[in-house]
Amino acid sequence: MNLQLKEKVVFVTGGSKGIGKAIAKAFIEEGAKVAIAARGKEELEACENELGVYAVQADLADEKERSRAFSEVVNELGKVDVLVNNVGGSNGSSISETELDTFYQAFDLNYFSAVHFSKLALPEMEKQKRGVIVNISSIFGREAGGRPTYNNAKAALISFTKALADEVIKNGIRVNGVAPGSILHPSGNWQKRIDEDPEKMKAFVENEIPAGRFGTAKEVANVVVFLASDKAGWVSGATINVDGGQSKSNF
């Protein structure tokens, strides 16, 4: 399907591996110009060589680093038509055993990075009277499961997605989200858990994922690319589960 994304400038945060890399690749396959930002130098260089993306090394949990990364992308590619706030990570354990600083760190990476990059992108998108922002959250932003620091931040991101969407759609800007379930890729936690205890993970899939398997990063990327296209022109403020039926929420 031609999603008419050729020559669009796309910026994917946390785009050097896993879901972020798959998103970057999917946009390139549609003919877009793609920039990515992440912390790991080796992964960024590998993506530059493999995909031909413009890569920026930055600690995206840091406000000044985010501003620098966004400026570099705009200076190099001229604008940002599509922003994908993908960067994230999980930390901490139970609430009682997790230091308050760890909660702050989780929100800086998973939530405030998306808020900040969105605020950086909006002025230019408003000038163009069009633009798309896609926030990558999690099904656990809607229900219990996983680590509280991560889930709390992703819940806030889902709420932010709807609030911002309602605010900016009058300016031609659409904001939506994607909430992945358990996605298997080489650099992810699920692969590590399979390596550690394959029988336990087999039972997890049988009991928790109606589709009977883990999802793939490409399956998440396909939904992101669709949401970025004009074919999703009447979709605004939604956060779409991509989870093979794993979520237990009816809403």
Rank of each mutant, 00 (worst) to 15 (best):
R68Y: 04
R68W: 02
R68C: 07
A69D: 02
A69P: 14
A69T: 07
A69S: 04
F70Q: 08
S71A: 14
S71Q: 13
S71P: 00
E72I: 06
E72S: 10
E72L: 02
E72R: 07
V73M: 11
V73F: 00
V73C: 12
V74A: 01
E76M: 01
E76A: 09
E76D: 03
L77W: 03
L77G: 09
L77Q: 01
G78W: 08
G78P: 05
K79W: 02
V80Y: 07
D81E: 08
D81M: 02
V82Q: 13
L83S: 13
L83R: 08
V84P: 11
V84G: 06
N86W: 03
N86Q: 04
V87Y: 06
V87I: 01
V87H: 07
V87S: 14
G88N: 05
G88M: 04
G88P: 15
G88T: 07
G89F: 05
G89C: 13
G89W: 06
S90K: 07
N91E: 10
N91Y: 13
N91M: 09
S93H: 13
S93N: 08
S94T: 15
S94I: 10
S94R: 10
S94F: 11
I95T: 15
I95Q: 12
I95W: 00
S96Y: 02
E97Q: 08
E97P: 06
E97L: 08
E97I: 10
E97A: 10
L100G: 01
L100Q: 12
L100C: 13
D101R: 02
D101K: 10
T102H: 00
T102K: 11
T102M: 12
Q105N: 14
Q105W: 07
Q105E: 15
A106C: 05
F107I: 09
F107M: 15
Y111H: 13
F112C: 02
F112V: 03
F112R: 12
F112G: 00
F112W: 15
S113T: 06
S113D: 09
S113L: 06
A114C: 08
A114F: 06
A114E: 01
A114P: 12
V115I: 15
V115L: 11
V115H: 10
H116G: 11
F117N: 13
S118G: 14
S118V: 05
S118I: 10
K119V: 07
K119E: 14
K119R: 15
L120V: 00
A121W: 05
L122A: 01
L122F: 12
P123K: 01
E124A: 15
E124S: 15
E124H: 09
E124I: 04
E124N: 11
M125F: 06
M125W: 08
M125Q: 11
E126C: 01
E126S: 14
E126L: 08
E126R: 15
K127F: 07
Q128A: 15
Q128D: 12
Q128V: 03
K129I: 02
K129H: 09
R130I: 03
R130M: 14
R130L: 07
R130P: 00
G131T: 05
G131A: 01
V132W: 13
V132N: 12
V132M: 03
I133N: 06
V134P: 06
